[in-house]
Design a binder for these strands. Sequence first.
DNA 1: AAAATAGTGTCTGTCAGACAGTATATC
DNA 2: GATATACTGTCTGACAGACACTATTTT
Lengths: 302, 302
Amino acid sequence: MSFVYTMSEEEREYLDSYDITAFDRPSVAADIAILSVMDHGERNNFRKLPRKALKLLMIKRATYPYKDCWALPGGFCRPDEDVYETAKRELYEETNVENVYLSHAGIFGEVGRDPRGWIISNTFLALMDGEKAALRADTDAWEAKWFSVGLVCREIKKEASGDSAELVNEYELSLEHDLSGLCLSAKVREYKEYRDYHEVVRYEIMESENIAFDHAKIILHVLLSLRKNAETDFKTVFDLMPEMFTLNSLQKAFELVLDKELLTANFRRKIMEYVIETDFVAETGGHRPSKLFKRNVERFYK
Amino acid sequence: MSFVYTMSEEEREYLDSYDITAFDRPSVAADIAILSVMDHGERNNFRKLPRKALKLLMIKRATYPYKDCWALPGGFCRPDEDVYETAKRELYEETNVENVYLSHAGIFGEVGRDPRGWIISNTFLALMDGEKAALRADTDAWEAKWFSVGLVCREIKKEASGDSAELVNEYELSLEHDLSGLCLSAKVREYKEYRDYHEVVRYEIMESENIAFDHAKIILHVLLSLRKNAETDFKTVFDLMPEMFTLNSLQKAFELVLDKELLTANFRRKIMEYVIETDFVAETGGHRPSKLFKRNVERFYK
DNA sequence: AAAATAGTGTCTGTCAGACAGTATATC
DNA sequence: GATATACTGTCTGACAGACACTATTTT
């Protein structure tokens, strides 16, 4: 804050006698869902391009509670930093990567969500390109791993009558680690109720296999918000791409985030004004090589 | 959380010896921007419809810091409640209104934002219909008042070259109280920088007249997010409407939120499937009365 | 030639923007 | 009849979805 706030003598006295510790206070944490698009699975055919997957970074907990379960990277907020800075710091500590997309994506403070006590979790979403992210490869020594994200939605209930409506969806979240075959999973229900002319949304964890705390709920929430955001603002998806990329890999990133297939011709027509062709090509195998493109920053801010 | 988490003996011991108070903790507050659409100004011509304005509820501070300045309603989070519940409780205490649109709209925890110490503010956005909101009218006795919201944007800088871009906008926020003529105002700059292929947005308060803390920044942020959200998801704007409304008043609500004029014929065509005609009419003056409509809830959840 | 990806051209229906026009109340 | 709001019809251009088509590389 840059503007100057001048204090009276009286106010100075009031503040000096103000005891902020008189009230109960929570611990505040920043948890980060770090997403990236990476190659996934075996490349069994030399001609075929590698399959791509949306990947999430999870960390194995070394201590109680939820010892040996996997959790989102995160940590507690310190008095000398903004929550945003906490997230940035944790992100760097876990990935050695700086300058990536980072946005606040919600707050989770339900009573009893952490057995250690009153802990409020600020959730952040970070997006980074797979090349940068892969530099700190996941080895057995390092307790952080990239998991392929799978999300399936099943409709449980859908009722709309007169002035009220109720929708229940069950999401099956599965997180798979490529090399070890390790698999984390969860079922989370989404309850949408429309009553008194207002919508109330609530999530409930039904099952949670090896995922710590309420992080399955948090991951679901982040994935759904990202998807919704990307529908209208496609600048976001570019944050998953390296400096130069093929139009095919950009399309794959969109498809993974939006969770639907796109028609190539239409996608290219729409995206064309946001990219600039470079003189480079990607030589990827037994077929015609594709041109590399970069962002057209000026169009982003037309 | 409904699933059961079973603890080992070892874990129980760990948790019993865990001292959460060993670390510094912040106070966590929920501040709410409560918006509503109400009639505004004198009705000088009996034929003309009342002018409408977007109104924000502000509270005059009785104590230091920022004594006699105006602030967003809010309060501290208690250990037995979710931050969301804090917001709902505060909302009810200030307005006597329940069951309205309420959503988390950001977190403000900059170091030094509150002279009392380390206080993190969770910002919520609440929307309610003007009829409900006006029930607790603003009297002189009550220190809460509805202010008409004015927001003007001026472009300070716009540079995009090669791989980086910089945009600076200055927003002039003015809050006017109809009866007393009381006026609060602020100038807040928005810095958008695009570097290393990622966007960073930052707000800075340049002036703040009678608005407490960093609330001018918070209000700006809430208004801009609401506007952006309403562009694509127009369910939100309906939360500003009573059970029955004229299409004209709905259009005015959209225009106030989106801050742009809409063409009536096009607006009606677009909105028609989301409303149902009722048998009632609004008799408003020396001209053809308009039909009253209600929400078509089933279409909201098609 | 076969296989695979790269990339283009065009038809079609929908929909938003613009605007002119008609309808119906009260004073 | 004047005034003000209520409400409708239709032209236009842009654009998204669908899909058939051509191009280019390696094995």
